[in-house]
């Protein structure tokens, strides 16, 4: 037996993976394409309005296809974990090799990466016997929320202290979001990625749509918010 059943089907003949938001993005008029084995909403049929929303209000894009790895170590190997990616620290999201590395506890880290690099990173990490690596991609729904009113949108459904001095670019924060456990990474001045449990995706979509919609925002395609983040530009020193 193995844990292969935790990783989405791969290969040319494999069925496209469906985001946990799929029913919601479909209902909202998503326009889809298959990328990296995932059915992805590349837009919602109103490119100009979507761009406007991101520029002047808030936009949210389904990025659940981002690869996610959990790394755990035993207490005596905490240093090993903290030494990854040039140095991890609690509350920080370190950008390294097309992935964000978030140390969640001294013995557990979460990696968020482009789907294309998932398998390679995993292999590399598994080579280190001290690390217990688990593919948790399916476990989380992921939203990229961006725009000048992104923080105000968060304020409508979560009590996390996202003030810039507490949540600088490159910070990672775990806590209750919309009454469910969440992880928030600030990738750029007005850009955040939010992770919650996959089963709550449809609920979360309705919460973000409700809050963001009142502020003039709307759902946007996966590329609308992918302007290079300050974090990516600044590398690990963000």
């Amino acid at each position: 037996m193995s844990l292969a059943f935790l990783t989405a089907a791969g290969g040319a003949s494999a069925p496209a993976a469906l985001s946990p938001f799929d029913a919601a993005t479909t209902a909202d008029g998503g326009v889809f394409e298959v990328r990296d084995g995932w059915r992805i909403a590349s837009g919602f049929g109103h490119p100009a309005a979507e761009e406007q929303a991101c520029e002047h209000a808030v936009g949210w894009a389904d990025v659940s296809h981002l690869g996610k790895l959990e790394i755990q170590v035993s207490a005596d190997a905490a240093d090993e974990l903290a030494g990854l990616a040039g140095g991890l620290a609690l509350g920080r999201a370190v950008r390294d090799r097309d992935a964000w590395w978030c140390l969640l506890t001294p013995v557990r880290a979460l990696l968020l990466c482009d789907p294309g690099v998932l398998a390679g990173l995993r292999q590399e990490l598994e080579a280190n016997a001290a690390l217990k690596v688990l593919d948790v991609t399916s476990q989380f729904a992921a939203l990229r929320i961006g725009g000048p009113l992104a923080r105000e949108t968060f304020a409508r459904f979560c009590a996390l202290d996202l003030r810039p001095e507490r949540m600088p670019v490159g910070a990672c924060m775990q806590g209750s979001v919309a009454r469910t456990p969440g992880v928030v990474v600030r990738m750029a001045t007005d850009q955040y990625v939010l992770l919650t449990g996959a089963a709550l995706a449809i609920y979360l979509w309705s919460v973000v749509s409700d809050a963001g919609g009142r502020l003039g925002g709307r759902p946007v395609g996966v590329d609308a918010l992918s302007a290079p983040s300050e974090l990516e530009e600044a590398g690990t020193h963000a």
Partner: peptide, 14 residues
């Protein structure tokens, strides 16, 4: 507050 309930749904719910 808002009338939204934190409902979990299975991936097959649709």
């Amino acid at each position: 507050g808002r009338p939204l309930e934190a409902a979990k749904r299975s991936a097959v719910h649709r």
